[in-house]
Simulated scan of single mutants.
Amino acid sequence: MRGAISSMQQEITAAQEGKRRKYEEEEKQKQKELEEREQMMWQTSVPAQQSWGKQQKEGLQVETEGSILQWYWQLQDAAEQCVAAFSDIGNCKGNTEVKKIKTNLQKAATIPVSQISSVSGSQLREVFDKINNLLSGKPVQTEGQTVWVTQHPQGLEFVCYKLAEKFVRHGEGEVSFHHDSAFPIAAVLSGIWELHPRVGDIFLAHLHKKCPYSVPFYPARKEGTSMEEYQRMLGYEVHDSKVEEPDHFLKRMSGMIRLYAAIIQLRWPYGSGQGAHPHGLSYGWRWLAQMLNLEPLADVTAVLLLDFLEVCGNALMRQYGIQFWKIMLFIQKSYIPRIEAVTSSGQMGCLSRLKTFVQKCLQAEEIPLPKGILTPSFWRT
């Protein structure tokens, strides 16, 4: 009897020991998989695992990743198809009635965007409703005229294009001078984008063409391309063979990057909130990773990297945690020296501001909230 009991106890102990070992092995495997995922995520995000000497030897990319370039060209094709889809409205010089419809539709699309401000949440909702109603086919009032997109078979395509174009112009104009304005504009646009994805795609196409660094994409000059045309590809405004001043160029690029950085972290508070953000933080993470995988450009890279981090850094920090801090450390230790290597003594201002921002954030282990962010109390006004 005692022998039988002893044998049973040994079997139970062995079974328990077997379960314990199995549990420990499973836990070790889970931890290993977690570490491998983190390692893979970091390696594919930025070249932080390479030594600085190896980076100098091999260099970073000079071209944007293939999949991102493909996305860029798909959006450009979509914009061209949109233009072709409203050709009758676009070329209506001889038709007075169509010309009047075109004028009214353009006003109905663009005037509300000009009215976006941070005066109050209720005012912003009124602007949103005007734009949403227009895109939804409902009649809207514009300068005493009743307008709706179904007045012309090509009306909706025309409005989508002009609306997206206006949002980008607001970024290079309004936001470049008043940084805080990025947030109310982004809030409205993100809500419209969620309900009307076509507008979002055309917006991105316009943004990328005006500011290729929002891809990010550094266009190469091809054989046979004139210098004037190449400067336009880089985002410069060229009028009568005269190129805009670098300071003005950087200011416009800054405004568009700030608007983009605001869009990817904001959602319209009155939306359904059921689906994913139409262009959320994962796109911001991808932009930052790709930017840091490209060889830096003098002035441009430092300015836009600082703009992006000031506006979106806090949101990325909260979303990606330790992986984000690895990126910040990479910027400080490896990428800033690369920017310094291509920056002349007269262009150090922007780079100094970037260095100070990154250093302060790493010391504080915190990215400050961006100035002008819309708080929950704003939407109650």
Results as ranks from 00 to 15, higher is better:
residue 345 S to W: 01
residue 335 Y to F: 15
residue 327 I to H: 03
residue 339 I to H: 04
residue 337 P to I: 08
residue 321 G to M: 03
residue 322 I to C: 01
residue 318 R to P: 01
residue 335 Y to T: 03
residue 318 R to S: 10
residue 336 I to G: 02
residue 331 I to P: 10
residue 322 I to Y: 12
residue 344 S to A: 13
residue 325 W to P: 06
residue 320 Y to P: 06
residue 333 K to C: 01
residue 333 K to P: 00
residue 346 G to F: 04
residue 335 Y to I: 04
residue 322 I to R: 11
residue 332 Q to R: 15
residue 329 L to C: 07
residue 322 I to D: 13
residue 333 K to S: 11
residue 332 Q to M: 10
residue 341 A to E: 15
residue 321 G to R: 14
residue 319 Q to K: 15
residue 341 A to T: 05
residue 323 Q to S: 13
residue 338 R to L: 12
residue 328 M to T: 08
residue 327 I to V: 15
residue 342 V to Q: 11
residue 321 G to C: 05
residue 344 S to E: 10
residue 345 S to C: 01
residue 336 I to Q: 08
residue 322 I to P: 00
residue 344 S to C: 03
residue 331 I to L: 05
residue 325 W to Q: 05
residue 332 Q to S: 14
residue 341 A to Q: 14
residue 329 L to H: 02
residue 341 A to S: 14
residue 330 F to G: 00
residue 331 I to Y: 02
residue 324 F to N: 09
residue 334 S to H: 12
residue 341 A to I: 00
residue 316 L to R: 09
residue 323 Q to N: 14
residue 335 Y to L: 06
residue 322 I to L: 08
residue 327 I to D: 02
residue 345 S to Y: 06
residue 317 M to Q: 15
residue 336 I to C: 03
residue 315 A to K: 13
residue 328 M to H: 08
residue 344 S to N: 08
residue 340 E to R: 14
residue 316 L to Y: 04
residue 338 R to K: 15
residue 326 K to G: 14
residue 331 I to K: 02
residue 316 L to F: 03
residue 323 Q to A: 05
residue 342 V to W: 03
residue 340 E to N: 10
residue 346 G to V: 08
residue 315 A to N: 08
residue 333 K to V: 13
residue 340 E to K: 14
residue 326 K to E: 13
residue 326 K to S: 07
residue 317 M to S: 15
residue 328 M to E: 07
residue 344 S to K: 10
residue 338 R to W: 01
residue 332 Q to W: 02
residue 343 T to A: 04
residue 331 I to C: 11
residue 316 L to G: 06
residue 320 Y to E: 07
residue 345 S to H: 07
residue 332 Q to I: 00
residue 333 K to E: 12
residue 340 E to M: 03
residue 325 W to V: 12
residue 318 R to H: 15
residue 330 F to Q: 01
residue 340 E to T: 14
residue 329 L to K: 04
residue 334 S to D: 10
residue 316 L to K: 11
residue 323 Q to R: 14
residue 328 M to A: 12
residue 346 G to N: 04
residue 324 F to M: 13
residue 334 S to P: 00
residue 325 W to C: 04
residue 333 K to M: 06
residue 315 A to S: 15
residue 318 R to G: 02
residue 325 W to E: 05
residue 331 I to S: 07
residue 342 V to F: 04
residue 327 I to Q: 12
residue 337 P to R: 13
residue 334 S to I: 04
residue 316 L to T: 11
residue 331 I to E: 07
residue 342 V to S: 09
residue 326 K to P: 00
residue 323 Q to G: 14
residue 338 R to P: 00
residue 339 I to T: 06
residue 316 L to S: 09
residue 320 Y to V: 09
residue 334 S to Q: 13
residue 323 Q to L: 12
residue 319 Q to W: 00
